[in-house]
């Protein structure tokens, strides 16, 4: 099996984030008793190294957004741990998360207009995180201008007093990136940061993001449903299905030679601009992802999988390491 070399280990790196058997189950209440759980994230383990970009790819309902929110501390966790620099943030009191953890993570959201309070100027928006962490006025002022220059909104004087509705989607997303980076975080979560922007703008914003990521050695978790941008932007790709991690590995490898049947199907159905596309019928998976309240026994893809075996319907496969940091959760790779 072909596997390319693992990505070069950057000097002085170690695991920044270690997620271990994470489960996030939302209780379903009827009156005052709990009748079941929605298993939004059901046993996910992976690591993110310093300065690494990991893309989390999956369709809606696969749990990627919930996972991301748990990592930045917005959502409580049912079981498992999330270790950031060795500290389990799921056990931290809210106060510590607010004071310490929030300085280490940043968030860039999908909707540039929704992510900005409409009644605040760009200056105020960028100053807020600094004010929350009690940074003095001169330092704040300097940082605002610095960040605006970093994200390409120059001259900064032209932008500080503008309100969000006066800026375009692309410009606002740059402000969002500036805001996410202004506290000097080590980890940034980008949740579909360019999917609401025009196609010709996406590469511009992603290149900027990539530039800053390399400059500051940021680790990025990039959530998307778009494999193509994931390939361009990330080092590794992680595929999620029905709340579980089904494949993770080097970005180019996962796309060139997907191992998990679901990854394979996903890669197959995404088109590139090609005039021959209209003559072919794509091989897809019929059906729907399983119910997260009562997932089927065994592998969750079994009802739809073209390679399904009897064992898949009974027993849930573990995650197999197939070499070179590639993990696949599928019985087909048992003997590796």
């Amino acid at each position: 099996m072909e596997v390319s070399n693992p990505p070069p280990v950057k000097p002085g790196t170690s695991d920044l984030l270690v997620v271990n058997e994470l489960r996030i189950w939302y209780p379903i209440r009827k009156l005052l008793s709990i009748v079941g759980y929605v298993r939004a994230v059901d046993g996910v383990s992976f690591t993110v190294r310093r300065g690494e970009v990991v893309a989390v790819v999956g369709e809606s309902g696969c749990g990627k957004t919930t996972l991301a929110k748990a990592i930045i501390g917005l959502v409580p966790v049912t079981k498992g741990s999330i270790l950031f620099e060795g500290v389990d943030i799921t056990k931290l009191p809210k106060r510590v998360i607010r004071n310490w953890y929030s300085r280490n993570v940043g968030l860039v959201q999908q909707d540039p207009y929704g992510a900005m309070p409409p009644f605040m100027t760009v200056r105020s928006i960028l100053e807020e995180p600094l004010k929350v962490h009690r940074v003095e006025k001169e330092v704040r002022n300097r940082k605002v201008y610095e960040m605006l220059t970093e994200v390409g909104l120059t001259p900064p004087e032209d932008y500080v007093n503008k309100y969000p509705h006066m800026l375009s989607g692309g410009q606002l997303q740059r402000v969002a990136i500036a805001r996410a980076l202004i506290l000097g975080p080590k980890l940034v979560l980008a949740d579909e940061p360019v999917s609401m922007l025009d196609a010709s703008l996406r590469i511009e914003i992603l290149s900027l993001f990539k530039e800053l990521q390399e400059k500051y050695g940021l680790a990025v978790i990039y959530i998307t449903h778009d494999f193509a941008t994931a390939k361009y932007f990330s080092d590794r790709i992680m595929v999620m299905y029905a709340g579980q991690l089904v494949e993770i590995g080097n970005a180019k490898d996962v796309i060139k030679k997907p191992l998990h049947p679901y990854t394979e199907a996903l890669v197959n159905v995404i088109p590139d601009p090609d005039p021959n596309n209209r003559f072919i019928t794509r091989k897809t998976l019929v059906g729907e992802p399983p119910n997260l309240i009562r997932p089927p026994p065994g592998c969750r893809l079994a009802p739809r999988c073209p390679y399904v075996m009897n064992r898949c319907k009974i027993e849930e496969p573990p995650t197999f390491n197939v070499g070179g940091l590639r993990l696949v959760k599928c019985w087909m790779y048992e003997k590796q």
Partner: peptide, 9 residues
């Protein structure tokens, strides 16, 4: 949501 992430009370 963004405000919660950067630690606003």
């Amino acid at each position: 949501e963004a405000a919660r992430v950067y630690g606003a009370s």
